[in-house]
Design a protein around this nucleic acid. Structure first.
Lengths: 205, 205, 205, 205
DNA sequence: TATGAATGAGGTTTCATTCAT
DNA sequence: GATGAATGAAACCTCATTCAT
């Protein structure tokens, strides 16, 4: 029947609401965002939002889940296409920077609104971050095992440090009035990270 | 004379309110924190809080300002006592880790509650962070100038990456159910950072 | 011909909705009853309910009207079959008790949900009650005229008192966790009512 | 200190809110009553209501509890002053009628709004009714024991029937456009009730 | 005729802040 | 200066009802 069409329409509407939420959350901040404005911008009635999402916080969760999952998928695929752990790490970090640079409103939400409360951070956001950290950690451990990376830095510490470095660059970019290209900062950032991780040529202290 | 005593009492009361705020913000989160609970815990009436601070957000600002300033002062003094830019950087990072590890409630507030909204982040919190970033950047630039650090990583990028790495370790520690000692993670973190910053012995790309 | 069949189907559907409403109103209470649940339980779509009834309150009205009318019809027929006003009154009261005891969900709705608001009570419910009160009053007046009942109690007061007594027994039964048979309480109730109404053998004060 | 005065002011304000609630509930019905109107009529701000009562339903509970308790107290005292069970019963019923006739808005709330939902009825209202029923039952049992009342009507059935009769007269009065004096209906009602309860002079079935 | 997705009005309650005492 | 009772703005969400298909 018209099921497929209906589903298309349904999916389109869902996307419209989600996109509207990203924009309103980015513009006003989560707390100051009004569900009415999300609905208006999505072109639906107030109540319609609640046919697609449980409530305001569920919108935030959905923004996180769907984008984080898509990112992780792409990052894993990128990494999977490389043999060398170094290349894998490079690709993942570049993907991270590029993904968020391509959608500033979404980056806003990811870097700031998704961290608005401890409860939310612990229950929701960190679940996706943990997943990402595990990916980084696995790649780094692989690099250490292959002799590429030094072995005196535990992979979990390294993974968090790498994530933190990338994350902070993105947050700066999000908060800046006149942001400098993120991709443009990838090269020095990668030099720093790889310099820190790679084994010294002549051996180090 | 009575003025001095009065001032002492006043100062003590102010401190009690501020400390109560740190604890309540850490326990409940900024949004869920109730001014009444802050007042109760400080042992004053609801209205008294407003004789010492403009309002709820002013408490958050005061927590930030006073602790950040004290930290920056100590960090600058620490750095000033060292000649070597490497030693300076090391001291500052260690001070950063130790300062927050010694007060978990305060660390909660610094890592999470102070970032609850874009407006607050831009108007307030980043002011102190910017100051800190400038300190890091100066030390790194000094290291580069002295030939200790490589010159193909702009000091501002390096400073943000270093800050992000440290910051993320602290956030993980704050959010962990069973946190591992922060100080214990300092050594590998410093190896990573210094590895990334220092010029290669034999020279590399 | 097909019309008759169609009408049968239509009538069946109408009944299903009405019955579903009785059950849902009894289980959840009128205010907490959801039209969706009524529709679900009747096996129709949300909107279909509105093809058979004007709305939620119209369902309540229909439950009242149809059952009250059927009850009144039976009560009048019962009474009509008796010559003696005493026997008439007895039959009507027994019919009242038995009718509601045979359908607890309906009794719930009659004793409680139909009285949920003054507006409803005045505009709707009392219309049927008034009818019933008139029947009681007529029988009692007849009893008084025939010398069976005492003449110092106005028939309208007596009718309301009798109705109230029966009504309260039913309400107690509806609200009780472990209700005792209503029919079983008919005998003492009737003794009380007839004792109150009947002329004293030797004349009283 | 000013504690007594403060308490007086507090009590006055509490009463004002409660009285406003009685009136608004009576005029609009519980569901259609707006807390704003209650506050306005009490001459306080919206939020003040919540300093004195937990919420809207708590107002209804308070109206019930306070008035029912006062009534029960008076009814028990009235009964206690009489020796004869018949006189006791008469006093209690008269008190019941008079109490509500003296405050029509309160009677509205008692006869209608307090019965608006099964949940409320079971959890709250019936608690007070049960108490009242027990009082009636005790008096009737006493009358039976003393040989005044017939022994073939269980006291609990009699108590409910009596309550129901009185209750229905009051409800009719509350709903009537041009109500006839309740006190004026007391005499025939009492004749009916006592006729029903009292032992027959010459003995009957 | 039946469907069920969409509509949108509407109100209780919380809590930061004020201010009379 | 300290108190704490009073203030009142403000928004999420539900659900009866509608109407395009």
């Amino acid at each position: 029947m018209g099921g497929a069409l209906r589903n298309d329409a349904r999916e389109a509407r869902r996307s419209a609401i989600l996109r509207a939420a990203v924009e309103v959350f980015a513009e006003r901040g989560y707390e100051d965002a009004r569900m009415r404005e999300v609905a208006e911008r999505a072109g639906v009635a107030d109540g319609t939002t609640y046919l697609y999402f449980q409530g305001k916080e569920a919108l935030l969760v959905a923004i996180l889940e769907e984008n984080a999952k898509a990112f992780l998928k792409r990052a894993r695929r990128d990494a999977g296409r490389q043999k060398d752990p170094g290349a894998k790490l490079r690709k993942v970090i570049e993907r991270h920077l590029v993904s968020l640079e391509s959608d500033r409103a979404l980056a806003h939400v990811f870097q700031i609104e998704l961290r608005h409360s401890r409860r939310f951070l612990r229950q929701v956001a960190r679940g996706q971050v943990a997943e990402y950290l595990r990916l980084l950690q696995r790649i780094i451990a692989e690099g250490t095992a292959s002799g590429l990376f030094r072995d005196d830095i535990p992979a979990d510490v390294a993974a968090r440090a790498v994530f933190g470095a990338v994350d902070e660059l993105i947050t700066s970019w999000v908060l800046a009035d006149r942001p400098r290209s993120l991709a443009g900062q990838a090269a020095p950032l990668l030099r720093l990270i790889f310099g820190g991780l790679e084994r010294r040529a002549g051996g180090s202290r």
